[in-house]
């Protein structure tokens, strides 16, 4: 059985790093999308901030290329939909049935991608550890404690076949639940709020972890910012949490 040579993978990555920007990224700038109304939020930290789980190149490509493409695709899909384009992203996704059929799938995929990644950047940048306070109490109450939550959340991530997300939803009353979503769907599409989630599309981890999604899922907890997640929890209960 083939055992991937770590060295050769790293060298492959380094060689690609030198040659890819011209060859690949120059062509990735298309399509020329309308500017706004939706915009790519800047990463709230340096690209190497999550190095304990995610390498800087992955962060850059993930944010600057993948997420940017969702934003551009969403704006393009809504270019003739003035009223829908004026909605906040969460309201748009909660009202997909109102989106004309011709662009509904595009809005679902691109809008979902925009919402999911906006959440994803926000909850990282920290040093891991454990939640405290009201959030810890809710995890103990609804998810069987932090250790069990991690195990179940990661197992859900392993069960997503193909591309998707493993997530925790939060009700206005503070109730927590574990869910998975395919592709770029989000619980917002069912009127639920997202507390936190991990991206298990291969683009989220392939450069460092290749086929080893389990290792990525395990390492990801080391870069969570529990203050940010606690703020999202408080926001959900106060009615101010959006995407």
């Amino acid at each position: 059985m083939f055992q991937p040579a770590r060295r050769s993978l790293l060298l492959g990555g380094a060689a690609l790093a030198l040659t890819m920007p011209r060859r690949v990224f120059a062509q990735a700038a298309a399509p020329a999308a309308p500017t706004g109304p939706f915009t790519l939020p800047p990463l709230p930290y340096d690209a190497n901030k999550n190095e304990a789980a995610i390498d800087a190149m992955t962060m850059e490509i993930h944010h600057d290329r993948h997420h940017a493409a969702y934003v551009a695709g969403l704006n393009a899909a809504l270019k003739d939909q003035e009223q829908l384009a004026a909605l906040p992203l969460d309201e748009l996704l909660m009202n997909l049935a109102r989106v004309p059929e011709a662009v509904r799938t595009a809005v679902r995929n691109m809008g979902g991608g925009h919402a999911n990644h906006s959440m994803f950047w926000q909850i990282m940048g920290g040093a891991g550890g454990e939640p405290g306070g009201a959030l810890k109490a809710a995890i103990d109450r609804d998810l069987g404690g932090f250790a069990k939550m991690k195990t179940d959340f990661n197992a859900n991530g392993m069960r997503v076949f193909g591309s998707g997300w493993t997530m925790v939803t939060v009700t206005p009353a503070g109730g927590l639940a574990l869910v998975t979503k395919p592709a770029q769907d989000t619980p917002l599409m069912e009127g639920q709020r997202v507390l936190m989630g991990n991206d298990v599309w291969e683009h989220a981890y392939y450069l460092r972890y290749q086929n080893k999604r389990a290792d990525y899922l395990a390492a990801w907890w080391n870069v969570l910012d529990w203050d940010k997640i606690a703020a999202r929890y408080a926001g959900a209960m106060g009615g101010t949490l959006r995407v």
């Binding site: 492959g12 990555g13 690609l16 890819m20 690949v24 990224f25 990735a28 490509i61 290329r65 993948h66 493409a69 591309s163 599309w201 291969e202 683009h203 392939y206 450069l207 290749q210 086929n211």
Partner: peptide, 10 residues
């Protein structure tokens, strides 16, 4: 993405 990510990224 596993089919092309090392060669073509996104």
């Amino acid at each position: 993405e596993h089919a092309y990510y090392l060669d073509f990224r996104n």
